[in-house]
């Protein structure tokens, strides 16, 4: 196995560079004192200072965080119940529902976004419900997040099967005690990982947000997108860097939780 390293090593190094190059450009330029160009002119925090004086940018940052936190919280509750329910109990049509649960991961986000746009617009026109804004965005994001939480929680429960609970039942533990002392601890890492992934998924989304946003609920990606159109983006690198840092941090925590499973497992 080791002998492949001579060939695969350089390729892997190149691939990592390729993946991190765009992220580095944004992060480095947010500390670059140059204005309107991308040559390195020395380390400077001025873009962060202008950022915290910029109302539009701050409100976009606030919107992004409110959206990600609220939607992740809702999705974690519903998704955990769903993951647990799907793991344990049967109902007619479960296979079909499973198929639908996998759809958001594979359907291009713009298809989901346009379906939701159409749905919300018709609801507003016909019934007067749901003006586009934070509410529609939260509804849309939770729809993307529920499957990921449910699938992770269910996968977590499947690792252990039901042997621990049966053992506890044989030893005379009551259903409540079994749930509290066995099921919950087994599920907990999955719930945390699922919730954090839901949060990053929301921060990483652009297309669904763009299609369901209203005039008052601009998030960071939408703001950046509009500024790209108008040409001047230098001052938005700091804002993008903050979002990237939060996503990266959550991704690291999730990866640590999920990969520690492998070691307990084997």
């Amino acid at each position: 196995m080791k002998k492949y390293l001579a060939i695969t090593g350089p390729i892997a190094a190149g691939i990592y560079c390729f993946l991190y190059l765009p992220i580095l450009v944004i992060v480095l330029n947010s500390f670059n004192s140059a204005r309107g160009e991308y040559e390195w002119k020395g380390f400077d925090l001025r873009w962060y200072r202008t950022l915290f004086a910029d109302e539009a940018a701050l409100s976009a940052l606030q919107n992004s965080l409110v959206l990600a936190t609220t939607s992740a919280a809702i999705a974690t509750v519903i998704g955990t119940l769903l993951g647990y329910g799907l793991n344990r109990y049967r109902f007619p049509g479960k296979r079909t529902f499973n198929g639908f649960l996998h759809l958001p991961a594979y359907v291009p986000d713009i298809v989901l976004a346009s379906a939701l746009l159409l749905f919300f617009t018709l609801l507003r026109q016909r019934a007067g419900w749901l003006a586009p804004g934070m509410t529609t965005m939260i509804l849309a994001h939770v729809t993307m997040q529920i499957p990921i939480v449910a699938i992770i929680v269910r996968a977590r429960l499947e690792i252990w099967g039901d042997s621990y609970e049966e053992a506890a039942a044989d030893l005379g533990a009551s259903p409540t005690k079994r749930f509290r002392m066995i099921t919950v601890p087994l599920m907990k890492p999955g719930v945390i990982a699922g919730g954090l992934l839901a949060f990053t998924l929301s921060l990483g989304d652009f297309v669904v947000s763009l299609f369901t946003a209203g005039p008052g609920s601009k998030t960071v990606p939408i703001l950046v997108y509009q500024k790209i159109g108008s040409g001047h983006t230098n001052d938005l690198n700091a804002l993008s860097t903050l979002i990237i840092a939060i996503s990266a941090l959550t991704a690291i925590i999730v990866a640590l939780i999920q990969s520690s499973r492998r070691y307990q497992d084997t």
């Binding site: 519903i78 998704g79 119940l81 769903l82 647990y84 329910g85 799907l86 344990r88 109990y89 049967r90 109902f91 529902f97 639908f100 649960l101 759809l103 958001p104 989901l112 346009s114 379906a115 939701l116 159409l118 749905f119 018709l122 509804l139 849309a140 939770v142 729809t143 529920i146 499957p147 449910a150």
Partner: peptide, 28 residues
């Protein structure tokens, strides 16, 4: 028993996904 528990546990998720995934896809 399975149905009853599914209703309480999976129910909210199924309702949400039906209302905000299946319905929009049907509408489109």
């Amino acid at each position: 028993g399975h149905l009853w528990r599914s209703m309480w546990l999976s129910g909210p998720g199924i309702a949400w996904m039906t209302l905000l995934l299946v319905c929009p896809l049907a509408v489109i």
